[in-house]
Every structure is written in structure tokens, then in C-alpha cells.
Amino acid sequence: MPASATSVFQVLFATTEQVIGPLPGYHHETYAVRLGAAPGLFGQSAGWVKLRDPRPGLLWFDRRCFGSEDDLLATLAGRVSHIPTVGHIDSLTVQGFIEGCTLAEVAPPGEEVPAAFVGQIVRLFRELLAVEPYDPALLALHAPLPAERGSAEFARDLVRFTFTDVVEHSLPHFDALFHSLGIHPGSAPATASSLETRLRGMTPRPFGLLHGDVHRANLIVDEHDALWAIDWELALIGDPLYDLATHLHLMRYPARQEGEVIARWADVAEESRPGAAEGIEADLPRYLAFKRIQSVYTDVIRQAYSTERGETSTAEAAKVINAALDRAADSLLLPTVAGAGEIEHELLRWLATPRQRGAANTGGSPSAS
């Protein structure tokens, strides 16, 4: 239980049955807590809230641009529907906890998403792009200020963050594992340069507000089959097409449904932010190639790091790494992809081998510079 919440727990909660957790999540240790009958707290007398503490020493694989997820959610209240509410218990800021199950539990990755939920996902993107990204209230929370330099420059910054702030920073700790998986660590700069070249000719698009992490585990289905978007920590202001590419990469729609989602996204994007879907035919595949390559590097590091901390089994980590390698094989020109069994063997060998320490624990650059 987060230490910062101890006194609040003692005052408000009568039994440990009112606390659930820790809940699944990478960036925070999170608990769901049912409020007691104390009036005036969080604007309600009862209900579930989330209490969270950041996990120390984590690697961050995407840029954090908004300094406070809670402040962002509070700013978006009334503009984007079905997002967590934010309130206060004494000096503690908390989010409302959405009771229900994840979309991943209803329709696991690779399976078709029920049509009613697809409609709600499309609505989410429409509402996001209807938010004025240069609203002073948003800009006050965003660092650095998002100069609208164009889609190509935005994409270049994504590549440089991945390969400089994450991969290059972490390689001293993980280079032997990359070698064993057939990815020479020294190829990372060349891969980054190739991606930058490929992204250079992208069509300029007006920037918008992006969630940055819309996938099945971050979409909660409540008892009324309403879909709620949670985990806004990777939100940013930038090229809207990147939000779609990230969504498609993580959702793993069946091919037919993916085509439908792309078409519906393009319609609402143009409706909410004219020009947001310009060049989609040429540029969406470029972003998807970047996401596949990014996943290989970051999934290897993240899964190895998680097994090292005893949070993930080597068998489960090997499956994730195998899937990332398989999806990026063409983009990385890999002649063969190691199977899950072989990857697990290499993970076990890496765990048992002395190696340089320290780089894995600093977290790269946890916030945008």
C-alpha cells in the first residue's frame, strides 16, 4: 500500500476488504479503494478511487509530455467523455476507479472487437481531435511546448528519443541479450538513421491531442457496456496519424476490421481537425514500421528488465519478445526469428551472466527534455 496514503486509509477505510490491489500496471503501484461514508470527499459519499505511487527506477519507453496525468484529466473533463474523474481526499489527489473489465478480457488481441465498442473507440478519437491543442490550459501542462514544425520533424523526434534516450542508454546492460537474439546492438544507429530517412518525406498535418496508448488493456468496459479510456500518461500534442498507428499496432485488429477502423478514423479525423488524415496511405505504413521496430528494442529491454526484477516469468517474456521479433522481421530484414523456447534459453543465460549494472535502473529520460 502506498506509504503516502497510510493516514488517509486509517481515517477513511474500516476494513481491508475495501482495498483491491496492487492492480496490473507498469508505471505505478496502484490500488482500488472503496470510499467510506465520509461526506464531501471526492464529491461523493461512496465509490471506488485509485491510489497510486510511482514505481522507482523504471525505464520509460515513450516521451512523457504532460507533467501530471491528473491535471490533464481535470482539464479534459467535459471535453472528452468517459475518462476518469479527478478529485481530492485531504491533500491526496485521486482518480475515480472505473468498475468493469478491460476490453482485452472481452476480446483479446487478435480477435475482432464488437462493433459497438469500435464505435466508441472512434468517438474517442473524434473527441480528442476536437480539443484545441494550443489551448493555454493544455499548454500550461505540456513540456516542452509543442512547436508545430511538421509531421516529419515530429516523427524524427520520436525516433531519436527511442534510439538515443532509451536504446543507446540501455545497451550496456542488455547488449549481450540483443546479440544472442540476432540483433547486433551496433546496428541501432543505422536503424535509426534509416527510419529518419524513411520518415523525412511525410505529409504535413495539423497537430492535435493524442492519447498515445489506446489499446485493449487501457479501455475499460463498465456494466452498461460503455468504454472508458484510462492511463493518459503518454498523452502528447503531435501528429494525429501517430495516435492511429500506435492504436493499430497495439490493438492487433484482424485485417478486415483494421481496414474498417482506418477508414472510420480518417472520416472523424477530417471532421474534427481538417487535414489530419492527409497522406494517410503513404504515411501510416511508415509509422507502423517505426512502431514494429521500436517494439523489438523496447520489448526486449522491458521484458528482460522485468524478469530481472522477478516480475515476469522467462517463459512469458519470451513469448512477448518472439511476437515483437516476428512482427518486425521484414522491417528489420531479419533472416530468421528465434522461437519462444530459444529466446527463453537466452534470457536464462543472460540472467545468469555477470554484466554491467546501473544503466537499467536510471530509467533513461523519464520526461521530455
Rank of each mutant, 00 (worst) to 15 (best):
residue 127 E to A: 08
residue 49 V to W: 01
residue 15 T to F: 06
residue 122 V to P: 02
residue 340 A to W: 07
residue 192 A to Q: 06
residue 302 R to M: 12
residue 98 I to E: 04
residue 207 F to G: 00
residue 317 A to R: 04
residue 4 S to Y: 07
residue 64 R to D: 10
residue 253 Y to W: 10
residue 295 S to V: 01
residue 100 G to I: 01
residue 238 G to V: 12
residue 48 W to E: 06
residue 254 P to A: 03
residue 299 D to Q: 13
residue 74 A to R: 14
residue 250 L to Y: 06
residue 244 L to Y: 00
residue 98 I to Q: 08
residue 65 C to H: 14
residue 321 I to E: 01
residue 27 H to Q: 15
residue 151 S to L: 06
residue 270 E to K: 01
residue 108 P to S: 02
residue 6 T to Q: 15
residue 141 L to G: 05
residue 60 W to Y: 15
residue 124 L to R: 09
residue 74 A to H: 12
residue 116 A to G: 02
residue 322 N to H: 15
residue 308 E to Q: 12
residue 107 A to W: 00
residue 152 A to I: 05
residue 267 D to S: 08
residue 159 V to M: 08
residue 224 H to R: 15
residue 20 I to H: 10
residue 340 A to L: 03
residue 119 G to W: 02
residue 132 E to P: 05
residue 234 L to P: 00
residue 149 R to L: 13
residue 165 D to H: 13
residue 288 L to I: 03
residue 237 I to A: 07
residue 68 S to W: 07
residue 272 S to G: 05
residue 40 G to F: 10
residue 349 R to N: 05
residue 316 E to A: 07
residue 26 Y to W: 14
residue 2 P to L: 01
residue 193 S to H: 15
residue 287 Y to F: 15
residue 24 P to L: 09
residue 251 M to S: 07
residue 366 P to A: 14
residue 225 D to Y: 09
residue 318 A to N: 05
residue 169 H to V: 11
residue 171 L to A: 07
residue 83 I to H: 08
residue 80 V to P: 02
residue 365 S to E: 14
residue 111 E to N: 07
residue 264 R to C: 00
residue 178 F to V: 09
residue 276 A to W: 05
residue 164 T to V: 13
residue 84 P to L: 03
residue 267 D to Q: 12
residue 212 G to I: 14
residue 186 G to P: 06
residue 143 A to L: 13
residue 295 S to I: 02
residue 369 S to Q: 13
residue 55 R to I: 14
residue 221 V to L: 08
residue 218 N to E: 09
residue 226 A to M: 09
residue 326 D to P: 00
residue 101 C to W: 00
residue 181 L to F: 08
residue 206 P to L: 09
residue 11 V to I: 12
residue 324 A to D: 06
residue 15 T to A: 10
residue 77 A to H: 14
residue 86 V to Q: 01
residue 321 I to W: 06
residue 356 Q to V: 12
residue 4 S to P: 03
residue 292 R to F: 03
residue 1 M to A: 09
residue 337 V to C: 06
residue 1 M to Y: 02
residue 113 V to M: 02
residue 330 D to E: 15
residue 169 H to R: 13
residue 125 F to L: 07
residue 338 A to L: 13
residue 325 L to W: 11
residue 39 P to T: 12
residue 206 P to A: 05
residue 355 R to W: 02
residue 75 T to I: 07
residue 190 A to I: 10
residue 83 I to D: 05
residue 317 A to Y: 04
residue 341 G to D: 12
residue 24 P to V: 07
residue 6 T to P: 00
residue 117 F to E: 02
residue 300 V to T: 10
residue 196 E to H: 04
residue 134 Y to P: 00
residue 46 A to L: 09
residue 358 G to P: 06
residue 103 L to Q: 03
residue 200 R to A: 15
residue 222 D to N: 14
residue 343 I to V: 08
residue 306 S to G: 09
residue 302 R to G: 13
residue 43 G to C: 12
residue 121 I to N: 00
residue 303 Q to N: 11
residue 38 A to N: 10
residue 90 D to Q: 11
residue 359 A to T: 07
